[in-house]
Design a protein around this nucleic acid. Structure first.
Lengths: 204, 204
DNA sequence: ATTGACATATGACATGTTGTCACTTAAAAT
DNA sequence: ATTTTAAGTGACAACATGTCATATGTCAAT
């Protein structure tokens, strides 16, 4: 997390910095990004950067966490709007993410995030990997999901279903970027996978 | 891929270099690893390194590809031994991978690989993400898999099933390392997930 | 044996990156 | 007005990467 100093900044200055960071992370991935570029863009001295953040990662994961939180809120809302139908909601969320990548800036940022997504990135952006966080999110969501049509025998099964479907959504986004799939192709793949998951891999 | 010069080296020198690299990548992840350490350990001049490899990544992904190829052979063999029973084979492979991490060196290497696994790493180690490679591997395997108990209507379905189950195996390994799970816990999780996949997420 | 062409070896170096620290400036508290 | 505390600043040490001029080795042709 950024240091207190960062949050004490005027909101304009904070925004300028965040924007500069986003520009850099849109241009290149975390690993190629340089602090020099960010401070130059934001017009602050190098020393100040370290007044606000531990390091480059600190800033990056702060950005990601905000983005992830937005995504989560969005999904929560979609789930409510669709009376807790989990699979319909997943598809809707995926659609929204795909559409958001129509914008070139947005697409490049996402591209850099997803093609370099590792456990730390996923833990921040998603929530699945961090145990406490995933349990907390799970508790927020489990009562909203309509479970009577789901083939589960306990809460643990639901937890796994959520984990599997979100992992696969992430994987599909990564593959979309890696293979430069169109939105339609990416959409179809995820839908086909969900269909398989729903009906089961082996015959009755 | 390493340059021809590397393959022209005596096999002892090649092994020394590979061992030095493995030591460094066991110590730290790709991003923290330094060429300086590798050349020091291997007792070769810095310039020679660039005679053999494009850069650090080149060496790393070469190591990974070898490892991935071994894994693939292993799976192919297991599948044969189990008369094409895909799910039994998956479980057996997972078990073998888990056991191989009992060795501390091996564990640290795998840990650094998996906790920093991104699309490039996965593409190299696995095969799922690279389209041509995944199709090629798929063609090698599709006739060995016993499909009469599988709930699929075409080859595409089988392709997706393989993609999903391998993605989830990787994810489970990552979570094992991230949460420091015991082999037993990690094993149980994957088994539970596979059980869910087999029977399907929604009621008939 | 000598030559020349080519492959390989070598380490100093230019360039860039990160994080720190002594010092300055500003703000707040007494 | 003075002291205490917080924030700003840029030069700098430490280290990393990839290149390049130069040295050395190899081997076929003469």
């Amino acid at each position: 997390m950024p240091k207190q100093t960062f949050f004490n900044l005027s909101s304009e200055k904070r925004q300028t910095l965040i924007q500069a960071a986003k520009t850099e992370f849109t241009r290149v991935s975390l690993y190629e990004a340089s602090i020099a570029n960010i401070v130059k863009e934001a017009e602050i001295p190098r020393g100040s950067f370290y007044q606000y953040f531990e390091d480059k990662d600190d800033l990056y994961f702060y950005l990601l966490e905000k983005q992830g939180e937005d995504q989560w809120q969005k999904f929560f809302q979609i789930l409510h709007e669709n009376d807790g139908d989990y699979f319909v909601s997943l598809i809707k969320l995926y659609e929204i993410i795909l559409i958001s990548t129509d914008d070139e800036e947005e697409r490049n940022f996402y591209r850099n995030v997803f093609l370099n997504m590792n456990y730390r990135t996923e833990e921040t952006f998603n929530y699945n990997i961090n145990y406490e966080k995933s349990r907390k999110k799970f508790n927020q969501i489990k009562d909203v999901i309509q479970t009577d049509t789901l083939n589960i025998s306990n809460e643990d099964d639901l937890f796994h279903i959520i984990q599997i479907t979100t992992t696969l959504m992430f994987q599909n986004i990564i593959i979309k970027f890696a293979h430069k799939l169109t939105n339609e192709e990416a959409f179809r793949n995820y839908q086909q996978q969900l269909a398989l998951l729903k009906k089961g891999f082996v015959k009755k």
